[in-house]
């Protein structure tokens, strides 16, 4: 049943995301190309294209975030909820299908953002031989990265990368489930449900942030992304506290969401 739910979830969202990503790719190429010609790069056209690209980038990120919320709220708690909540599936299966699709689109949007920047840079190089030699040079630099990382931090590059990706995934699950729980808490109110969901989100986030401050060895404000060697060593030691904490939070939010959807649903 979960596979079938996922099939229709992607059917509902693939077209729009595909169009967004194509638009972003097109704008990044156009903006990059415009840098090659003095007529456009020095004029307002180049400026407009670059600004449009940056706006599109922000728009895609915002659209991804809003779609994650909308797919849960409208499809399960709105009019379409009459269809979804009468399917012969458990609530946890509905929540899981939304969560998996949300993670996929979040990851795809991040990857697409990186790819668009790469396309923009590549488009500034109009000569094919120069493009290929630049690409070759880039790959050579990238191949030295693991050794450089290990020399400056004393940590294994691949293990650190795996830890980073794992933590990103678990934090992603926890964050998305937190959004879903906020929606379900807001749904418990008869009126002003959207406002109640937003307030619930801020209250839950405040509670989580307070909890993180109480846990020793975790400095929540530092986040995860570092660039200096010492920073990575710091991240590595925090990993074994952050990962289980986020995992427990994710499981808790998922369980509360599923319970409220199964036992406390009141569709208008």
């Amino acid at each position: 049943m979960l596979r079938k739910l996922l099939k229709y979830e992607f059917l509902a969202t693939a077209r729009v995301f595909g169009a967004c990503y194509l638009g972003l790719a097109a704008l990044s190429i156009l903006a990059g190309l415009s840098m090659n010609f003095p007529a456009t790069s020095n004029s307002i056209v180049g400026g407009i294209l670059l600004t449009a690209y940056i706006c599109m980038l922000v728009a895609v990120m915002l659209f991804t975030f809003l779609t994650i919320i909308r797919r849960f709220y409208q499809n399960l708690l709105g009019g379409e909820g009459y269809l979804m909540n009468t399917l012969p599936v458990h609530a946890w299966q509905l929540v899981t299908s939304k969560l998996i699709a949300a993670l996929v689109w979040a990851a795809a949007s991040i990857i697409m953002a990186g790819a668009s920047f790469f396309l923009l840079t590549a488009a500034t190089i109009t000569s094919a031989p120069v493009l290929f030699s630049s690409l070759g040079e880039l790959f050579v630099q990238l191949s030295h990265l693991p050794a450089y990382f290990e020399a400056s931090t004393g940590l294994s590059f691949w293990l650190s990368l795996l830890q980073f990706l794992l933590l990103m995934a678990v934090e992603g699950i926890s964050s998305i489930c937190r959004l879903y729980t906020s929606c379900m808490v807001g749904h418990q109110f008869r009126r002003w449900r959207v406002a109640a969901s937003i307030i619930a989100y801020f209250l839950i986030s405040f509670a989580v942030s307070t909890l993180m401050d109480l846990i020793p060895w975790v400095n929540a404000s530092e986040g995860v992304l570092f660039v200096e060697g010492e920073g990575f060593i710091h991240f590595s030691s925090q990993f074994w506290v952050l990962l289980p904490t986020e995992a427990v939070l994710g499981v808790l939010f998922f369980a509360v969401t599923s319970y409220l959807l199964e036992k406390r649903l009141n569709l208008d």
Partner: peptide, 9 residues
């Protein structure tokens, strides 16, 4: 009818 369908608690 909505109660019978589990759409209301």
């Amino acid at each position: 009818i909505k109660l019978a369908n589990g759409l209301l608690t």
